[in-house]
Measured scan of single mutants.
Amino acid sequence: NKFNKEQQWATYEILNLPNLNEEQRKAFIDSLKDDPSQSANLLAEAKKLNDAQA
């Protein structure tokens, strides 16, 4: 299913963002699990935070 693929991709991407700390990473991944339909939005937020902390 589409959300499952998006969720897996977003999880992979978030795990590989270098500037997030473990707590932030875990929070994003927990949110992905809670609502896979928000995968794209959550990934965008994670990338923004990652860039802000660069």
Results as ranks from 00 to 15, higher is better:
residue 34 D to A: 11
residue 22 E to R: 09
residue 8 Q to M: 12
residue 41 N to P: 10
residue 7 Q to V: 15
residue 8 Q to T: 04
residue 46 A to Q: 00
residue 53 Q to T: 08
residue 32 L to Q: 03
residue 9 W to N: 06
residue 22 E to M: 07
residue 40 A to Q: 10
residue 34 D to R: 09
residue 7 Q to M: 14
residue 17 L to G: 00
residue 14 I to M: 04
residue 49 L to T: 07
residue 25 R to P: 00
residue 13 E to W: 12
residue 51 D to K: 10
residue 43 L to A: 13
residue 40 A to F: 09
residue 54 A to P: 08
residue 25 R to E: 01
residue 40 A to K: 09
residue 38 Q to K: 09
residue 30 D to S: 08
residue 30 D to E: 13
residue 15 L to F: 03
residue 3 F to G: 15
residue 39 S to I: 15
residue 45 E to W: 05
residue 17 L to R: 00
residue 38 Q to F: 04
residue 45 E to M: 09
residue 41 N to D: 11
residue 22 E to Y: 11
residue 16 N to G: 09
residue 25 R to M: 04
residue 48 K to H: 05
residue 6 E to S: 03
residue 6 E to P: 02
residue 30 D to P: 00
residue 42 L to M: 13
residue 23 E to Y: 11
residue 39 S to A: 11
residue 25 R to G: 02
residue 3 F to E: 15
residue 54 A to N: 10
residue 1 N to V: 03
residue 29 I to F: 05
residue 50 N to M: 01
residue 37 S to K: 09
residue 35 D to E: 09
residue 8 Q to F: 05
residue 53 Q to H: 07
residue 36 P to I: 06
residue 10 A to H: 07
residue 25 R to T: 07
residue 22 E to F: 11
residue 26 K to I: 09
residue 34 D to T: 11
residue 14 I to V: 06
residue 15 L to T: 14
residue 31 S to H: 11
residue 53 Q to Y: 07
residue 26 K to G: 08
residue 33 K to T: 13
residue 6 E to Y: 11
residue 22 E to P: 13
residue 44 A to K: 06
residue 14 I to L: 04
residue 8 Q to D: 04
residue 1 N to G: 09
residue 10 A to Q: 02
residue 53 Q to L: 10
residue 12 Y to G: 13
residue 21 N to L: 12
residue 2 K to V: 04
residue 12 Y to V: 06
residue 12 Y to T: 12
residue 10 A to W: 03
residue 14 I to H: 01
residue 18 P to R: 05
residue 48 K to F: 05
residue 21 N to S: 11
residue 14 I to P: 01
residue 23 E to V: 12
residue 51 D to A: 12
residue 11 T to A: 15
residue 28 F to N: 00
residue 52 A to S: 06
residue 1 N to S: 02
residue 34 D to I: 11
residue 37 S to A: 10
residue 3 F to D: 15
residue 11 T to M: 15
residue 26 K to N: 11
residue 41 N to R: 14
residue 45 E to A: 06
residue 3 F to H: 15
residue 10 A to F: 06
residue 25 R to F: 03
residue 15 L to K: 08
residue 30 D to L: 06
residue 12 Y to E: 15
residue 24 Q to R: 02
residue 5 K to H: 06
residue 36 P to A: 09
residue 54 A to G: 12
residue 49 L to N: 03
residue 51 D to H: 07
residue 4 N to L: 14
residue 44 A to Y: 12
residue 21 N to H: 11
residue 30 D to K: 05
residue 21 N to I: 08
residue 53 Q to I: 13
residue 10 A to V: 11
residue 35 D to Y: 14
residue 27 A to T: 09
residue 26 K to F: 09
residue 39 S to W: 15
residue 40 A to T: 10
residue 15 L to Q: 13
residue 23 E to K: 11
residue 12 Y to W: 13
residue 43 L to Q: 04
residue 26 K to W: 10
residue 53 Q to S: 09
residue 9 W to F: 13
residue 45 E to Q: 10
residue 26 K to L: 09
residue 10 A to L: 04
residue 23 E to N: 13
residue 45 E to G: 05
residue 27 A to Y: 14
residue 31 S to Y: 07
residue 47 K to N: 06
residue 26 K to M: 08
residue 41 N to F: 09
residue 10 A to E: 02
residue 16 N to Q: 10
residue 27 A to V: 12
residue 23 E to D: 13
residue 11 T to R: 06
residue 36 P to K: 03
residue 37 S to T: 07
residue 29 I to A: 04
residue 10 A to P: 02
residue 11 T to S: 13
residue 46 A to R: 00
residue 47 K to Q: 06
residue 4 N to M: 06
residue 15 L to N: 14
residue 1 N to L: 02
residue 53 Q to W: 07
residue 12 Y to P: 02
residue 7 Q to I: 13
residue 50 N to T: 01
residue 31 S to L: 11
residue 7 Q to H: 04
residue 19 N to H: 12
residue 48 K to Y: 08
residue 30 D to N: 10
residue 21 N to G: 10
residue 50 N to H: 02
residue 6 E to M: 09
residue 5 K to Q: 14
residue 13 E to D: 04
residue 47 K to D: 02
residue 19 N to L: 06
residue 27 A to H: 11
residue 21 N to A: 12
residue 51 D to T: 10
residue 24 Q to F: 02
residue 48 K to L: 13
residue 40 A to Y: 10
residue 44 A to T: 08
residue 48 K to W: 13
residue 47 K to L: 13
residue 24 Q to D: 04
residue 9 W to S: 06
residue 34 D to V: 10
residue 3 F to W: 03
residue 31 S to R: 13
residue 3 F to Y: 07
residue 49 L to Y: 05
residue 7 Q to F: 15
residue 18 P to I: 05
residue 32 L to Y: 02
residue 31 S to G: 11
residue 31 S to P: 02
residue 7 Q to L: 15
residue 31 S to W: 10
residue 33 K to S: 14
residue 27 A to D: 14
residue 54 A to Y: 11
residue 13 E to A: 08
residue 23 E to I: 14
residue 13 E to N: 06
residue 5 K to N: 14
residue 38 Q to V: 06
residue 33 K to E: 12
residue 50 N to R: 01
residue 34 D to G: 08
residue 39 S to M: 05
residue 28 F to L: 06
residue 11 T to Q: 15
residue 45 E to R: 05
residue 49 L to S: 03
residue 47 K to E: 04
residue 34 D to E: 13
residue 51 D to Q: 10
residue 42 L to S: 04
residue 6 E to D: 13
residue 35 D to K: 10
residue 12 Y to K: 06
residue 3 F to A: 15
residue 21 N to E: 08
residue 40 A to E: 06
residue 47 K to H: 08
residue 34 D to W: 12
residue 32 L to F: 03
residue 36 P to F: 05
residue 33 K to V: 15
residue 54 A to T: 13
residue 26 K to R: 13
residue 19 N to I: 01
residue 50 N to Q: 02
residue 34 D to F: 14
residue 23 E to L: 11
residue 16 N to R: 11
residue 4 N to E: 15
residue 37 S to I: 06
residue 53 Q to D: 04
residue 24 Q to H: 03
residue 5 K to Y: 04
residue 23 E to F: 11
residue 15 L to E: 14
residue 28 F to G: 00
residue 30 D to G: 06
residue 20 L to Q: 00
residue 17 L to Q: 03
residue 27 A to N: 11
residue 17 L to V: 00
residue 13 E to S: 07
residue 23 E to R: 12
residue 47 K to G: 03
residue 14 I to K: 00
residue 10 A to K: 02
residue 53 Q to P: 04
residue 52 A to D: 05
residue 19 N to Q: 05
residue 17 L to I: 01
residue 2 K to Q: 15
residue 46 A to I: 01
residue 52 A to Y: 09
residue 20 L to I: 14
residue 22 E to H: 10
residue 3 F to P: 15
residue 7 Q to T: 08
residue 49 L to F: 07
residue 18 P to N: 05
residue 14 I to W: 01
residue 18 P to K: 07
residue 47 K to Y: 10
residue 9 W to L: 15
residue 22 E to W: 13
residue 34 D to S: 12
residue 37 S to H: 05
residue 27 A to L: 11
residue 35 D to V: 09
residue 7 Q to G: 06
residue 35 D to P: 01
residue 6 E to F: 13
residue 17 L to A: 02
residue 48 K to E: 09
residue 48 K to N: 07
residue 9 W to A: 14
residue 2 K to S: 15
residue 5 K to F: 03
residue 34 D to Q: 14
residue 1 N to T: 04
residue 14 I to N: 01
residue 41 N to G: 08
residue 15 L to G: 08
residue 18 P to E: 07
residue 33 K to R: 11
residue 8 Q to H: 03
residue 47 K to T: 09
residue 31 S to Q: 12
residue 6 E to V: 04
residue 13 E to I: 12
residue 52 A to F: 11
residue 39 S to Q: 03
residue 36 P to H: 04
residue 23 E to A: 12
residue 13 E to M: 14
residue 24 Q to S: 04
residue 29 I to Y: 03
residue 18 P to Q: 08
residue 42 L to A: 10
residue 9 W to K: 14
residue 45 E to H: 05
residue 51 D to I: 07
residue 9 W to Q: 15
residue 2 K to I: 15
residue 42 L to E: 02
residue 51 D to F: 13
residue 37 S to Q: 09
residue 45 E to N: 11
residue 27 A to W: 11
residue 13 E to L: 14
residue 23 E to H: 10
residue 4 N to G: 15
residue 30 D to I: 08
residue 22 E to Q: 12
residue 43 L to W: 07
residue 27 A to G: 07
residue 4 N to W: 15
residue 32 L to H: 00
residue 25 R to K: 14
residue 16 N to T: 07
